[in-house]
């Protein structure tokens, strides 16, 4: 059973479990050699656009991370080359490691929460009647379509210490939350941050997984139920293997986004809290640059790029391993 379904997401024809014993190769030979250079040439315009739009800033970033670039250089003074000094400075700074640790924990937490909740919402979508499903979809779409800045400002008002709805509600329910500040302690601050980031991330995950779930033929699910599999067993043995490739892609994307998170944290910091204790990598890189040390900021940004590349490579490896099963 599992073998048939694991091929769903990859487009290769389903393989029978005893193909290995029959000695046949598992995949048809690639037709690449016959097409020649054409596929690559077709990619050039897109790559050129990407190169100009993304490549140039990347190159500037790498160059700037090896320079001492301050306010004067913004206005035309030449920038002295300092090699890897900027990197030495950040790696030797204990505050940087604090920020890094904080960002990684925040990212891990958000990715896990987004994926778990997204999966649950997708399951919900699959089981609802048409009217309710449309209603839920519309709600999810609104959450997804709201710009990050707008959403963060509204959430910040909801959690406002003096005039926010949450404090009002909790006080009505009997708690002592009059004037309680949600942003002044780092843990509470990141609780609100997580809430916003997960709220914005779940719709995409939910819709994608729901689409994946609709690909599973009903007969397979019915057969599993007839065989006596309970709901959890059906999920684990039927749904999950079908969704796995999708899941890995979503995990990779979520990791990249949640590590790079900027808007939500930055805007929340404006509203309250102690900046020093709530900086994540993206915000820290910005603040260092805004503090007129663009070289150092560029170095921090490059570290962030490095980490996201590693994470992406890891996920890609998972995906390729998936395909070989």
């Amino acid at each position: 059973m599992t073998a048939v379904l694991s091929a769903e997401g990859t487009g290769t024809p389903p393989v029978l479990p005893d193909s290995r014993r029959a000695g046949r190769s598992r995949r048809p030979r690639p037709a690449r050699s016959r097409a020649g250079l054409l596929p690559y040439l077709l990619l050039v315009p897109a790559l050129a656009a990407l190169g100009a739009g993304l490549g140039y800033p990347m190159v500037r970033l790498v160059v700037m991370s090896t320079q001492e670039f301050g306010l004067r250089q913004q206005f035309g003074a030449p920038a002295p080359y300092v090699g890897l000094d900027n990197f030495a400075e950040i790696f030797g700074d204990p505050y940087f490691w604090d920020v890094l640790r904080r960002s990684l924990v925040f990212c891990a937490l958000n990715v896990v929460l987004t994926l778990v909740l997204g999966t649950l919402v997708a399951q919900l979508l699959a089981r609802l009647g048409t009217v309710m499903r449309t209603g839920l979809s519309v709600a999810l779409l609104f959450a997804w379509a709201t710009p990050a800045l707008t959403a963060t400002i509204v959430w910040q008002w909801i959690f406002d210490a003096r005039y926010g709805v949450v404090n009002w509600l909790l006080t009505r329910l009997g708690g002592d939350f009059e004037g309680h500040s949600w942003l002044s302690q780092p843990l509470s601050f990141f609780f609100v941050g997580t809430l916003i980031v997960v709220w914005m991330g779940v719709p995409f995950v939910a819709f994608t997984l729901y689409a994946g779930m609709t690909q599973i033929p009903n007969e397979v699910m019915e057969a599993a139920a007839i065989d006596g599999a309970g709901a959890w067993a059906r999920f684990r043995d039927v749904t999950w293997p079908a969704l796995k490739p999708l899941f890995i892609v979503l995990a990779a994307l979520s990791t990249v986004w949640d590590l790079r998170v900027f808007t939500q944290i930055f805007v929340l910091q404006q509203a309250g809290g102690i900046t020093r204790e709530t900086n994540t990598l993206g915000v820290y890189a910005y603040r260092t640059s805004a503090g007129n040390d663009f070289g150092l900021g560029a170095a921090i940004a490059l570290v962030m790029v490095g980490i996201t590349l590693l994470a992406t490579l890891f996920h890609l490896r998972q995906m390729f391993r998936q395909e070989e099963v």
Partner: peptide
């Protein structure tokens, strides 16, 4: 092919970087 593409990207990047340095001086 990858090497050619990489070279093309870098060449584009190099072309773009000229004017910026001059602006402030």
């Amino acid at each position: 092919v990858a090497a050619i593409l990489l070279a093309a990207v870098l060449a584009l990047a190099a072309c773009g970087s000229d004017d910026d340095e001059g602006a402030g001086t």
